[in-house]
C-alpha cells in the first residue's frame, strides 16, 4: 500500500514537473542557434576552407575579372 502511494506521488510529481517545464518559455533555442551560427563563422571553423583556397592551383591574379 505504501509503495503504491509513493508510486502515485512520484508519477504526480513527474507530471507536475513536466507541465511546469512546458509552461516556462524556452529562451535557450534562439541563444543556442545564434551561438552555433557565430561559432561556425569563427576563424578556427573557417581555417580548413581558407587553407583549401590557398592550395588551389588555379590563377590567383592572372585572371582579372570575376
Amino acid at each position: 500500500m505504501i509503495v503504491l502511494v509513493i508510486g502515485i506521488v512520484v508519477v504526480v510529481a513527474v507530471v507536475a514537473a513536466l507541465v511546469v517545464l512546458r509552461r516556462i518559455p524556452r529562451h535557450d533555442t534562439g541563444v543556442t542557434r545564434f551561438q552555433r551560427h557565430i561559432d561556425a563563422l569563427s576563424p578556427e571553423a573557417r581555417r580548413a576552407v581558407i587553407d583549401r583556397g590557398t592550395q588551389h592551383p588555379d590563377g590567383r591574379r592572372e585572371q582579372r575579372d570575376n
Binding site: R33, H37, A40, L41, R46, V49, R52, G53, T54
Partner: peptide, 25 residues
C-alpha cells in the same frame, strides 16, 4: 584580400561545409 578571385566561392563553400549551422544566412 589575399584571394580576391576566390573569396566569394570559398565563403559559399564554408556555408556548404557548415550547412545546418549557417542555413539562416
Amino acid at each position: 584580400s589575399n584571394m580576391p578571385l576566390e573569396a566569394v566561392v570559398l565563403g559559399a563553400g564554408h556555408c556548404i561545409e557548415h550547412y545546418d549551422a549557417l542555413k539562416g544566412m
